[in-house]
Design a protein around this nucleic acid. Structure first.
Length: 571
DNA sequence: GCCGTTTTCGGCCCGACTGTTTTCAGTCG
């Protein structure tokens, strides 16, 4: 698939054009096309062959010609022209906060700034501050931006952002009298990573609340503090923005600051066509305010049903909302069990009894204890005879916890030759077999997975792509083939809820659903508290538009085991 | 550069904050 490459080229063109002072609308046209193509499921080459490039939203005659040129010749003249006109170092400077295209261009033209070192130099010698429109404070802010940039401020995981948001909200509640307070932005949309954290608060004393916010104990730097907006750095690099609004605007502000940007731009376009205006204070017809206290107002005035935050990415949800055909998304309360947790038998910390009791407290009906297999030495994988011992222990523990079913399971390694780490005689005695690659990521990963799925005892394929969000790309995989085999054999694909995995991702999980594959959302717990990771997996599932029926651990135990037996018998 | 029940030309989401201005530009989200 060349989708990502084309998207990256358009993105780059947009960056350069912006730097060169091209009108923002043209820049945005490239950015929009880049986003749509980057997220598109269909192979852009297929779309092109079928003559449907122009049907891609945001692609008109000019961009279609450029895509065609690239797909035919492997080159895009516009891209090469644009990129060669400005050095890459210079474009990268736009990543620096408080330094935008105008200032970068000015510094380049007047002072010959070509890269980060040049920029530091003109700051140090004071020449940047002397340029027209510049001054000490502006330069100081750019300097701060450079410091942040050099700390390689990456996006943080949703698994880190959520607890931090909860802590900040609790602190703020204890220090001020706020009526409502909640996270907005990509945190609310449950994106797998979050750039900045956005928090929205309802109050009629905005300035006071903002002051309290920027002086919270964890705040290390204040970026801005006005009457309605405060912006700070928490710890050494996480930016948190707080917005304060009154009751009459809370819903509109929540909608606005939840985004995504693409979703909101689309909504505003519809509003304009209907003679309405939407902003963070409400919905307006001329001077008259016709909504904004409730978030749903914003959607209802446009004849749309309310759209769950996780779907707000402008990936077709607005069109569905107009027809009242939104999916009924899965919720945490639908989850009836966790099919991938580890106990102290391998590398987990908790006992099986503790896991069962803790799961019961979450209203689960079943839990599958899947410890590592013998080849996973680093994780104290179990030898065959230990597996049998563990099955016996589960039988005994089960007698003391009658109201939750403890399923004996294993997370079985898929070995280098595609065979499994236990013989079928052992697998047959387990209730749930989860298979996964843990070693030799780059060796024939696709073939090994296909072979593993052919085994009738392999019910679930765990963390199918193997990516670690903060650290590694994932197996070299032909995902389309893996999905086809899963659909063919009735193998379940996992959404692993561990914050650094979230694997399958939202986009991949949505593709799996479209191919008729069932999924399982599992916590991959290694200690009791990690059972709560389930909510992250559910977030991914909601972003993938999954409904309860798509996810097997919303099923009753009977229905779940029936599905497993169908795979065992062969379809 | 895209797009079309007001438009094939003239729009394109919109406001807060900051700093450098003396009425506004740049940046951000």
């Amino acid at each position: 698939m060349k989708n990502k490459i084309v998207a990256a080229m358009f993105e780059k063109i947009a960056d350069v054009l912006e730097f060169q002072g091209e009108i923002p609308f043209k820049v945005n046209a490239y950015r929009k096309a880049a986003r749509v193509i980057g997220e598109m499921q269909e192979d852009i080459e297929d779309v092109w062959r079928e003559g449907r490039l122009r049907e891609i939203p945001g692609v008109g005659t000019a961009l279609a010609t450029k895509i065609e040129e690239y797909l035919t010749t492997g080159k895009m003249t516009k891209y090469e022209d644009v990129v060669s006109s400005v050095s890459a170092d210079l474009i990268e400077l736009l990543e620096i906060q408080n330094l935008g295209p105008k200032t970068a261009a000015l510094a380049n033209k007047k002072l010959g700034v070509e890269n980060l070192n040049d920029l530091k130099r003109v700051i140090a010698d004071g020449s940047l501050a002397k340029l027209p429109g510049m001054g000490e404070k502006k330069v100081e802010n750019i300097q701060k931006g450079i410091e942040l940039y050099e700390r390689a401020r990456a996006r943080i995981s949703i698994g880190v952002a959520l607890p931090l948001v909860e802590e900040l909200i609790a602190e703020l509640k204890s220090r001020t009298q706020v009526k409502k307070i909640e996270a907005a932005g990509s945190t609310r949309r449950m994106r797998e990573t979050v750039g900045d954290i956005d928090i929205l608060v309802e109050t009629d004393r905005g300035a006071e609340v903002i002051q309290a916010f920027v002086h919270l104990p964890n705040v290390t730097r204040i970026l801005a503090a006005g009457d309605t907006k405060g912006s700070v750095i928490v710890g050494d690099r996480i930016q948190v923005d707080l917005r304060a609004v009154g009751k009459e605007s809370y819903g509109a502000a929540l909608q606005y600051f939840t985004g995504s940007k693409a979703h909101n731009v689309h909504l505003r376009g519809i509003a304009r066509k209907n003679g309405l205006k939407i902003n963070e204070y409400g919905v307006f017809r001329g001077e008259e305010k016709i909504g904004g206290e409730k978030e749903a107002d914003v959607y209802h005035v446009l004849d749309l049903v309310w759209i769950p935050p996780e779907m707000r990415e402008d990936r077709g949800e607005i069109e569905l909302a107009a027809q009242n055909r939104l999916p009924h998304l899965i919720e945490l309360k639908h989850i009836k069990g966790d099919l991938h947790v580890h106990s102290h038998w391998s590398d987990g910390k908790a006992t099986i009894a503790a896991l069962a009791i803790e799961a019961r407290q979450r209203d689960y009906r079943y839990i599958a204890v899947c410890d590592h297999s013998k080849s996973a030495k680093y994780a104290h994988g179990l030898e065959e005879e230990q597996v049998l011992e563990k099955i016996e222990e589960i039988k005994q523990i089960q007698e003391n916890v009658p109201d939750i079913k403890i399923l004996s399971g294993a997370e079985v390694d898929i070995l280098a030759d595609g065979s499994l780490d236990y013989p079928d005689e052992i697998l047959a005695q387990l209730d749930i077999v989860v298979a996964a690659i843990h070693q030799g990521f780059k060796q024939r990963a696709t073939e090994r997975m296909l072979a593993a799925m052919e085994n009738p005892y392999v019910f679930i394929l765990a963390h199918p792509t193997g990516r670690l969000i903060s650290r590694r790309e994932g197996y070299r995989l032909e995902l389309e083939k893996v999905f086809q085999k899963a659909a063919e054999t009735g193998t379940i694909l996992e959404i692993n809820s561990y914050y650094d995995r979230l694997d399958l991702s939202d986009v991949n999980a949505r593709r799996a659903k479209e191919m008729g594959i069932k999924l399982s959302i599992n916590s991959d717990t290694h200690e009791l508290a990690q059972l709560d990771a389930m909510k992250l997996g559910v977030g991914v599932a909601r972003r993938a538009w999954l409904e309860p029926e798509d996810v097997i651990n919303t099923y009753s135990l009977e229905k779940l085991l029936k599905l497993r037996d169908e795979k065992r018998k062969g379809r």
